[in-house]
Design a protein around this nucleic acid. Structure first.
Length: 574
DNA sequence: GCCGTTTTCGGCCCGACTGTTTTCAGTCG
């Protein structure tokens, strides 16, 4: 049968769905976990499974994939569906998965609700609650029933917050707790510390002396809407702003272990603990132990040291191969903000930016940069006052004059050229040739088929003047999905054509994402980390781009705007 | 369902908090 081009994401979603259903069915929890772990590992792959199957690769070589799952993957890829899942759905109503999302309801209770009251949907649950049937069940006391009812009422919209929205909230809470009695150390942990693009909640870890009032202070912060959970060492609240915050307080000697535990990712922790137990060691929030003897935990680095591996930066802790690398002492030397020598995507008031070319240039100089590229929009993008050839030529004259005046700084001539529907560029060849680099981007016709969109973009990349593909997938996190695009084909074309891919640092874009970056790096494709600044303040967004680059395993040599100007121009063929 | 220098069976991370319970199961992170 003709293989489908079914995506890794779809296959992972199928395995996750199986895990949900098996869990409700009361299956062996380790079997459930095998499906979940496989789903997670599949998401981290840099090659499409459909391609691996077509090449006849041995799927059992992949982590977490054995005979049974390899066979299921092959069936999904070749037939587009999975008989086993269809059978499961027949036996267990798939709507039950939605009940799992309600806080306080796990597989056991969902199973019980289904068996005893035939509850199979949110509506059924609401009705049963209203009729007082739920509280009649064994183990469903008045408080639990109330919390389920509350959870059901809140059910609408479990949102993941974007990193840049969570950052200021987290910092404000940390600052109000820092001066509490007995607080020696306090840090943000969780997915914020790993700089994940979206976060579900905010985790904070404190190392304290015996006498501390941090928990009381935390629970009585003015922003607290309700207390979700409270204990002597751990509490959780919901703020009026909708954020959930977990606070974990341990004795200062255990701060490193607690910080590690609450930084996660969970899959990273599980992998480390499994490894530790193979070495006869045990890791928990309080330390790392050999037998009953505690051999570390004050500092986070103790854990990696005792396990005989390199320290793993938080951005890498996703169990995507970092543990294996750390054991072999060949982790990437992740890029840092200070390695950046320039910004290659900047708007000015000549299109939709708010500051002049000179103002942006002086701001970039103040950041210690050697260069920046002015990349105002082109004429097709009328809403952004895109420039036609004549206005662009005027801009180039202004840049020439400024470059004569600015000491030790170069403004590169460029444009964020629209990629038109047929893959041609929105500027004439004569003007394109006068630019130091050409940034190309899609700003309309997002809804083309995957095939057409991929063709359109690769055609644009084939233009001899084309340098950098900006925000390659067009997504706006939580607002707009990426357009349909065969990213593996785009990466292959970039490699072949010597085109650079952008990691757009706008925190609502972060496009390429972390996995794309890793895949591009492995393919030998260079990345530009650019802010797409529309104001002086936006230049600071570089930090978000660098964080995402680190999550994508990028090193300074993978990123073109770490190069000195001369070498950058040579790479661009100028 | 996966995995292996405890290797083809018998393990599989670890602990806090809650509610309903008289010692623990379920959920969560």
């Amino acid at each position: 049968m003709e293989p489908t081009k079914i995506s890794n994401r779809t296959i992972a979603a199928i395995f996750d769905e199986i895990a949900d259903l098996l869990e409700i069915d009361g299956a062996n929890p380790f079997r459930v976990r095998a499906y979940r772990r496989a789903a997670q590992n599949i998401l981290a792959l840099s090659k499409p499974l459909s391609q691996l199957v077509a090449e006849g690769a041995d799927l059992t070589q992949l982590p977490g994939i054995g005979e049974a799952l390899a066979q299921k993957i092959t069936e999904i890829v070749t037939t587009g569906s999975l008989h086993y899942l269809d059978e499961l759905k027949k036996r267990i109503p798939p709507d039950l998965e939605r009940l799992l999302k309600i806080s306080g309801l796990g597989p056991k209770r969902v199973h019980q609700l289904y068996e005893a009251l035939h509850i199979r949907s949110l509506a059924d649950l609401k009705k049963a609650l209203d009729e007082g049937k739920v509280q009649a069940l064994d183990g469903f006391g008045p408080k639990l029933v109330q919390s389920i009812a509350d959870g059901l009422a809140r059910q609408t919209g479990v949102v993941r917050h974007r990193l840049f929205e969570a950052d200021p909230v987290a910092h404000a809470v940390v600052e109000s707790l820092r001066r509490c009695k007995g607080v020696r150390r306090i840090e943000i942990a969780g997915s914020i510390r790993r700089r994940k693009e979206t976060v579900k909640d905010i985790d904070i870890v404190a190392g304290t002396s015996m006498n501390t009032d941090i928990m009381e202070t935390f629970l009585s912060l003015p922003d607290v809407k309700r207390i979700v959970m409270q204990g002597p060492t751990r509490s959780s609240v919901e703020l009026f702003s909708g954020f959930h915050i977990d606070l974990r307080a341990v004795h200062e000697e255990a701060f490193g272990s607690a910080l590690h535990h609450f930084t996660g990712a969970r899959s990273h922790n599980i992998a480390l603990r499994t490894m530790a137990s193979e070495q006869g060691l045990k890791i928990n929030e309080y330390g790392i132990y050999k037998g009953v003897r505690r051999i570390g935990g004050e500092h986070e680095s103790d854990i990696y040291e005792r396990l005989g591996m390199q320290y793993i930066e938080p951005e890498l802790r996703e169990n995507r191969g970092e543990i294996e690398c750390a054991l072999q002492h060949r982790l990437p030397k992740l890029i840092e903000r200070k390695a950046i020598r320039g910004d290659l995507h900047i708007h000015t008031d000549r299109s939709d930016g708010s500051a002049s070319v000179e103002t942006m240039a002086r701001a970039a100089m103040a950041l210690g940069y050697e260069y920046m590229a002015v990349t105002d929009h082109t004429k097709h993008l009328t809403v952004a006052r895109g420039q036609d050839e004549d206005r662009l030529l005027e801009a180039l004259d202004e840049i020439d004059a400024l470059n004569d005046r600015l000491e030790g700084f170069t403004i590169l001539k460029s444009a964020e050229t629209d990629i038109l529907e047929d893959g041609s560029l929105d500027l004439g060849d004569e003007v394109l040739r006068r630019l130091d680099l050409v940034v190309g981007a899609v700003h309309f016709k997002f809804n083309l088929s995957k095939k057409m969109q991929t063709k359109r973009i690769i055609k644009a990349m084939e233009h001899p003047a084309f340098s950098i593909l900006a925000h390659p997938t067009g997504r706006l996190i939580n607002l707009r999905d990426p357009y349909e695009l065969d990213m593996h084909a785009v990466i292959a074309a970039a490699k072949e054509l010597g085109v650079i891919l952008e990691l757009n640092a706008q925190p609502s874009r972060l496009d390429l994402n972390d996995l794309h970056c890793k895949t591009a790096k492995e393919a030998g494709v260079k990345i530009a980390v650019s802010t797409d600044a529309h104001s002086v303040a936006d230049l600071q967004l570089m930090a978000y781009g660098i964080a995402q680059a680190r999550r994508g395993w990028l090193e300074p040599e993978d990123v073109v705007n770490t190069l000195p100007l001369k070498e950058l121009l040579a790479l661009l063929g100028r």
